[in-house]
Design a protein around this nucleic acid. Structure first.
Length: 272
DNA sequence: AACCATTCCAACCGCTCAGTG
DNA sequence: ACACTGAGCGGTTGGAATGGT
């Protein structure tokens, strides 16, 4: 048996919102607020819409101080840095970019940034991220570099990439840090002159042993410190961090200790 | 001008999680 | 402890807009 639907689909309107619906919703929320109950809101506001649809429309479009239009360079870099750090946690990323919504950032990532980072040719003026960074280490999360569907593009710098390991890292391996062992989909790619490490964006695996919020804060805090320590090169050369640098920095932080402690505890409980 | 391909983004869907009784 | 409910989230999709031939 599936989950009960949140509303009667046959009685609610779907598709694009009309200006009339927008103003109804906006006026109602301006007057009464959401009341913490989105399901009841459309009926009260006189809208033939699902509560979820109203919520989405409000959060992504109607709510005050929403920014639309082009993302700035700083916003782009923030998105890239956070994606490399925490993966596709769009709501957390959005919380770092005032006025931007998770949906906006997700769309921007999927339609523009991802392509830019992977060096897929486009009409845009900038040279590709990989082209700029041939002699440096990069950290990219794997959802957009999945090794099982990895297909080099015709782009020269991208073509040079070759998977050298497709095995999930063993949790008993002593050569890599505990922080990265927990990632299920870590893959190392090498070019002639540089190393690219791609690790899973699915951070939930890492956080099974801790409160998700604490873990997110841990990652964000670590990355903020990382960014502040590399401010100049970060701003000038896009978001580019070495694997070892990130690992070392995060492990050196207090939160790193917290994480390792949690991990030790988890390993204890997993023992037969 | 007409057609087709691609890009973009608003909106939807289905899932997880937290709160509540 | 359990079931139920609503909020919130991330992945996916439909279709409008745009670009190319």
């Amino acid at each position: 048996m599936g989950r009960a639907p949140c509303c009667d689909k046959s009685k609610v309107k779907k598709g694009p919102w009309s200006p009339e619906e927008d103003s109804k919703l906006k006026e109602f929320i301006d007057k009464y607020g959401t009341g913490g109950n989105w399901i009841a809101l459309p009926h009260k506001a006189g809208l033939k819409r699902c509560g979820k649809s109203c919520r989405l429309r409000w959060l992504n479009y109607l709510r005050p101080n929403i920014k639309h239009g082009e993302f700035s360079d700083v916003e782009e870099r923030t998105i890239c840095a956070l994606f490399a750090s925490i993966g596709s946690r769009w709501s957390i990323i959005a919380s770092q970019l005032p006025g931007r919504t998770d949906n906006d950032i997700k769309n921007y990532w999927n339609t523009k940034l991802k392509k830019k980072l992977l060096g897929i040719p486009s009409s845009q003026k900038k040279t590709s991220f990989l082209q700029q960074q041939q002699h440096q280490q990069l950290v990219l999360p794997s959802p957009y570099l999945p090794y099982n569907t990895f297909e080099p593009s015709s782009n020269l710098s991208y073509q040079a990439l070759q998977p050298i390991s497709q095995e999930p890292l063993s949790s008993s391996s002593s050569s890599s840090s505990p922080l990265f062992q927990a990632s299920e989909k870590q893959v190392k790619l090498e070019t002639g002159s540089s190393t690219v490490l791609a690790f899973g964006g699915e951070m939930q695996n890492w956080s099974t042993c801790s409160e998700q919020l604490d873990f997110s804060n841990f990652l964000l805090k670590g990355f903020e410190e990382q960014i502040s320590g590399m401010q100049n090169s970060f701003l000038e050369e896009f978001s580019c961090f070495g694997y070892d640098e990130i690992k070392q920095h995060l492990l050196n932080s207090n939160n790193g200790e917290f994480f390792l402690e949690e991990q030790r505890r988890q390993q204890e409980t997993e023992k037969p």
